[in-house]
Amino acid sequence: MIRGIRGATTVTANDETEMIDATEKLLQEMIRENQIQPDDVCSIFISLTEDLTAAFPAKALRRFDGWNYVPVMCMKEVPVPESLEKCIRVMMHVNTKLNQSEVKHIYLEQAISLRPDLQKQNH
């Protein structure tokens, strides 16, 4: 069964190093919490708010051994007024035996405010 696993984080500045490091941390947590292997991943979409232009956060995935063939794409998030700024969101499509209720969606930093209901469920 293919499941979508969501995650999000925020950064404090439009800075390449900070963006890639924050994305790496988010991806590591998503992978660890859901016991994901690279061969089980169909694709990964990463979106950024329009105030983040310094880097492609997909570069973070290339730091992981064995993940070089996983398709990943970056895109711009819909610029909704008054939405969370400097936010990086991830949607990972994974083959898994987990039920929807067992999937652990990961929200870090200020992005916890996006889905506090899922944050409480995960811990």
Rank of each mutant, 00 (worst) to 15 (best):
S47F: 01
M19T: 12
E16Y: 09
T12C: 04
T10A: 07
A22K: 14
T17M: 00
T17C: 00
Q37K: 15
A8R: 00
M30E: 03
E50D: 13
D21S: 10
I20L: 06
D39K: 14
R32K: 12
T9A: 04
L27T: 01
D51K: 02
D15C: 14
I36W: 09
S43M: 10
V41P: 04
T9C: 11
Q28Y: 05
E18G: 08
N34C: 14
T12E: 13
I44P: 08
V41N: 09
A54R: 10
P38N: 05
G7Q: 00
T23A: 09
E18N: 08
D21W: 07
D40E: 06
D40S: 13
E50I: 05
D39W: 11
D39I: 06
T10M: 12
D51E: 15
T49N: 03
S43P: 01
M19E: 14
I36G: 09
C42A: 13
E16W: 04
D21Q: 13
M30R: 00
I46L: 11
T23W: 05
E50H: 06
T53W: 07
D21K: 10
I44F: 02
S43R: 11
Q37R: 15
I31W: 07
I31Q: 04
D21L: 09
Q28F: 05
S43I: 07
T53K: 14
S47Y: 02
S43T: 10
I31L: 04
A55P: 04
R6T: 00
S47G: 10
L48A: 05
A13P: 10
E50L: 03
I31Y: 05
A54P: 15
T23M: 14
L48E: 09
Q35V: 06
C42T: 12
T12A: 12
T12M: 10
M30P: 06
K25E: 15
D40R: 03
G7C: 00
D21R: 13
L27S: 01
V11A: 07
E24H: 09
E33R: 15
E24C: 01
D51C: 12
V11N: 11
P38Y: 02
S47M: 00
E29D: 13
S43L: 05
E16C: 11
G7D: 01
L26N: 08
R32A: 08
D51N: 15
A55K: 02
